[in-house]
Design a binder for these strands. Structure first.
Lengths: 301, 301
DNA sequence: GTCATCCATACCCCGAGGGTATAAGCACGG
DNA sequence: CCGTGCTTATACCCTCGGGGTATGGATGAC
């Protein structure tokens, strides 16, 4: 029925990426004829044509587009299986937790310590990763748990909210809005906003507060320090969690609370439906450590 | 590196299920020696031992348990890829929407009609499926969109809430609590609650309102009509969305609002991170149709 | 001790996956 | 209008690995 193999999907994706059998074959390290044959076989197995190819051009059919959209889920699942199995097979299995840099360092440390004190607890490795990397690491199995922030990253995971922070606008020191004590989302409409590289449109809407039009101009941003640098240069305006502002006091940037912006919620996330025992324990520890932690910063009404 | 193939994972799961190489081989339709060899090869590829086997017994190692937990994600992903590709390859591609029986029939019909009226809209197939089936259909690609209810089913999908309903308790007509006009969660503690078959512990906690201990006794339930039958027989007590109660007036069952129970939210769900254009259109239609629909029933404070 | 059960080993076979050579289709330039 | 270059498809061969059968070896039941 559907004896589709991972290798065939790898071949498919190479061709779909290159839209050229010869180049794809080179990339895969095989010759072109076997690749053509493998694709034909895949098409026969699934029962639909994936490419339209004349002798000069290769293009994806609608079915091919559909398959391309699904392949990464397969690769992620296989990769996750291998990664997690290898970790579980080590003499001292460890739980890998990933978090974005700079947010809630103290809380994270306390949670990890709390977990480590449990009887029979596995070793915990904390991996600090860049913007958007947490979700990818969770998907492909390099991590078991993640502390993530922006709502759109939650997609596809089970989550437990840890805490919410109000948002502040990061403005160039001389900006006209910096003269005001507080702001509202309305004030920010039309200003250049940072463009995150992997952000889907949905995520950008979330950042902007969901009630306003999507700002489509502003510099490409990869991490928070780059964002602040761009703000200082007057290239953009940031809508950031208050803790990030507190950890980065700068004379050339003014932080002003945005009272009606959606709060920035940090959640602990793990693969959807996972029933691993340590997850339950870790999440419980995280929640219990939480109540003893006070999140400071200006409170939104 | 990780040239793990789907076939090997199928073999692995068969052995993990049976914990017996010979029976697993029979189930797979192959002989036992090639199966043993395939498992060894898989162990060599991943680099960890998956089973401890003496000549009398086979058991999973911790690594084997980890792999078993991940395999279904791989099978789902492959199955989803094949299903969706086949549908996309048909001469008239269709979008498959699945929903649980009886909930929001009118709303669903209106949404589907609204979508069908869009220029260039694909044909929409609506599949009514049993309890818990919606999530499975979304995972393995038999469906593209789902209307689902209980929070634990959301796991792993992108969602957009459609509407919330208050919860009512379904009690046997003669039950002592039936004499009261309204109830609170506290009143239900200790009563037998239905046990859904595929429910993870997390889901059961959600059903109970998340603030109370998990009730572990009560009959096994597969669908809502079975639930009501069991309530009428005095076997259990249901905590159900108000619309379900309204569609099933019965003299032998008393419905009483549970004021502080978490509301029952129906959401529209689709595979996490999917960027298919019709999903955005469909969700938009669903949201816009929503505002014209009034959800009746007792309002919770 | 004998037997049954079950996994591992040994050995064979064939087909699928991969390679080379080449044909065939098509755009483009002279 | 005909080469030339680029690309995919076909033909053919080879090798490796997946699958089969036969059997060994370990272990628990009786």
């Amino acid at each position: 029925m559907d004896d589709v193999e991972v290798r065939e999907l790898r071949y498919f994706r190479a061709v779909a990426d290159e839209l050229n059998f010869s180049r794809a074959a080179t990339r895969l390290g095989i010759a072109q004829p076997p690749l053509s044959r493998a694709i034909r076989q895949l098409e026969r197995r699934i029962g639909v044509q994936l490419f339209v190819r004349d002798t000069r051009q290769v293009a994806l059919t609608p079915a091919g587009h559909a398959l391309l959209a699904e392949t990464s889920r397969v690769f992620d699942a296989v990769s996750a299986a291998v990664h997690r199995t290898r970790r579980a097979g080590r003499s001292t299995p460890s739980v890998v937790v990933t978090a974005k840099a700079g947010v809630a360092t103290e809380l994270l440390r306390r949670i990890v310590r709390g977990y480590a004190e449990l009887p029979g607890a596995e070793q915990v490795e904390v991996v600090v990763s860049g913007y958007g990397e947490q979700a990818a690491m969770l998907r492909d199995g390099r991590a078991d748990l993640a502390f993530i922030g922006s709502p759109a990253e939650y997609a596809g995971f089970d989550t437990e909210p840890l805490y919410s922070e109000p948002r502040v606008a990061a403005l160039p020191a001389g900006h006209e809005l910096a003269s005001r004590a507080t702001l509202s989302c309305r004030d920010l409409v039309g200003l250049p906003m940072p463009q995150w590289p992997d952000a889907t449109p949905a995520e950008r809407v979330y950042w902007a507060g969901r009630d306003y039009d999507l700002p489509t101009h502003g510099p490409e941003i990869r991490d928070s320090s780059q964002l602040l640098e761009n703000v200082a240069l007057g290239q953009t305006v940031g809508l950031i969690p208050s803790s990030l502002a507190e950890h980065n006091p700068r004379p050339d940037i003014a932080y002003r609370p945005v009272l009606d912006a959606s709060p920035y919620t940090t959640v602990i996330a793990w693969p959807a439906g996972s029933t691993a025992p340590w997850i339950a324990r870790f999440v419980q520890i995280a929640s219990s450590q939480l109540v003893t932690t006070v999140i400071d910063g200006p409170s939104s009404p």
